[in-house]
Design a protein around this nucleic acid. Structure first.
Lengths: 317, 317
DNA sequence: ATTTGCTATGAAACCCGTTCCACATTCTAG
DNA sequence: CTAGAATGTGGAACGGGTTTCATAGCAAAT
């Protein structure tokens, strides 16, 4: 491949002039411009992107940490991020983590090594405090409540919709509710925490442990969780699920066992809940993804927190 | 940020020795190693990834062109690619294209400029011939039949399953079949072409134009396509859909209109078809994605074509 | 006639690593 | 004891751009 020095040599101008000509940064005579352009075309020259990045000290790349690529939460966030990135000149690099500490640290290390200009954590295994410490190496945006850290964040006020949902259930005089929550390590799962807090706010009590199953994310998880409820003779009137697919998995279990299907509340407002007429919660993750991208690429953004209202979508009354 | 020259200065060794110490490439005394490591720790030094890339002439990045991020075809391919990339040391950059020629060319330009080591086109708008011409700038892998080009490819032999499906329909004495195909520009849509060819092979005839609707990819598209059939008094016994979600959209339309739902055949073997007991076709795109990644990262691979058998999954007989 | 202010150009420094190669030691085998 | 091998080290080139700064030519302003 031809380099800028080749162009300089072949055109008879200096590399400085060639650089100026190529970047149209002025101070190039019409004659020089033409001569250089001809040589560029002849030698099929294109400036090396890595060299430019090195020189500029930026990569125009945002690393997006995705623990789990099948869950709609992440798909929706990613879509939002990509929409926003579309003609921003930024590239998006996907960093699958599976919530593994070692992987997350490895990606943060890449940030330290300037492989990315910024990072977006759609979710995280390592504590926020620790994450915040890496901000000195580059901008880090998270997609949940940043708590007492100073991390920029775009996230959903999940409790708004959760409370609406529980109020609705309370009005229907539903008392026995099963909870299928996300990750097992409850202290780091904002979702699970918000769910239970909203429940407590409306119902004034805490659900018994046997009514909660954690680590539930997929259709299959939902199916097995329902099985577990059944085996332990836990019979919820309603099951509050972490995701529409989860709800559908639950439903599938009861149908296959020829048991009455309990009421369901899903999350993420996906095709499946629409299809089966299941009430759901929309956290507007596509919007949140877009907001996260903006926060990542505009370090001077103020405020650097964006909280979105979640909506409870009533269906199949 | 500290650079390798800072470390050299502070430790009293040369940058060559520092580089060797950091990369453990030998010829460094224990004393030097220790001294250098201490300074590295003190100055919080980490080698700049861009500089390394420039020096090495590689980016360890694969660009993946995705026209459409919601369709399962792309999601599955991407998952396959990411699985394979996982601990390969490669990063995956997503390049949304919407099948737009201008965008695809822009991404190819980036390849030319060495922003990626290789590219995977999960689908493409520009002709294969043109794509093939860019191979001189880097490896380009496609996910369909490369035809008469020399592009490396991982793809599904769609016709195997299509024929199985049509044979099954023929045995059931189904004669009126509606087709919901993907892109409108039929000459570049391998899927649509394969579908119709398989039909012709089994049924010995070509479906009438009024039985084919193109540009159908989503649930909503399916819904509207069904509406169109209905409005034009086209009443298929079976509708062969481009994707499970499409099939579900079709079903939704007929149900909402209180019309009998025609038989359906989906594609991609997703949750939705499982749920509604709709026969479907599995093209194994996760595997294909993984294969595409391997082809992209092993330029010397032989053969550089991998064709996967598709499977017709019979359900709801 | 002199100063000021552009335009145009190129040498050289800079971004930050890796690696080649020359040179000095220190082993090791014959 | 000595030639040859292996270890340790650093200067300098290299990867391929951008940018600063000095210099020169030339026109407008004083």
């Amino acid at each position: 491949m031809a380099t800028i020095r080749d162009i300089a040599k072949a055109s008879g101008y200096s590399i400085a002039t060639v650089s100026r000509a190529i970047n149209h940064s002025g101070y190039v005579s019409a004659k020089a411009q033409q001569a250089i352009e001809r040589v560029v075309a002849e030698l099929d020259y294109a400036p090396n992107a890595i060299a430019q990045d090195l020189s500029a000290g930026v990569t125009h790349t945002i690393g997006v940490v995705l623990p789990h690529s099948n869950h709609p939460y992440f798909t929706q966030l990613l879509n939002g991020i990509m929409n926003a990135a579309f003609d921003s000149g930024y590239k998006i690099t996907i960093l699958p983590s599976g919530w593994q500490r070692s992987l997350e640290l490895e990606y943060l290390e890449q940030l330290r090594r300037k492989a990315f200009d910024a990072m977006i954590f759609t979710s995280h295994g390592i504590p926020l405090k620790e994450l915040a410490a890496y901000q000195r190496y580059g901008r880090i945006v998270i997609c949940e409540d940043p708590k007492d850290t100073d991390l920029p964040a775009a996230y959903s006020d999940r409790e708004v919709a959760y409370r609406a949902a529980f109020s609705w259930l309370q009005q229907k005089q539903v008392t026995h509710i099963g909870f299928l929550l996300s990750r097992a390590q409850e202290h780091i799962s904002a979702t699970s925490y918000a769910t239970l807090r909203a429940f407590r706010a409306i119902y004034g009590r805490t659900p018994g442990k046997e009514w909660i199953i954690s680590g539930i994310n997929t259709y299959e998880d939902g199916y097995h969780a329902a099985e577990k409820f059944h085996q332990h003779q836990i019979e919820p009137e309603y099951i509050f699920s972490n995701g529409d697919d989860v709800a559908v998995g639950v439903r599938q279990y009861y149908i296959q066992q020829h048991l009455p299907v309990p009421g369901l509340v899903g999350q993420e407002n996906q095709l499946t809940s629409k299809l089966l007429n299941i009430p759901t919660i929309d956290h507007h993750f596509v919007q949140i993804g877009a907001a996260a991208f903006e926060l990542a690429t505009h370090p001077e953004a103020t405020p650097d927190r964006e909280k979105f209202q979640s909506d409870f979508i009533l269906r199949g009354i």
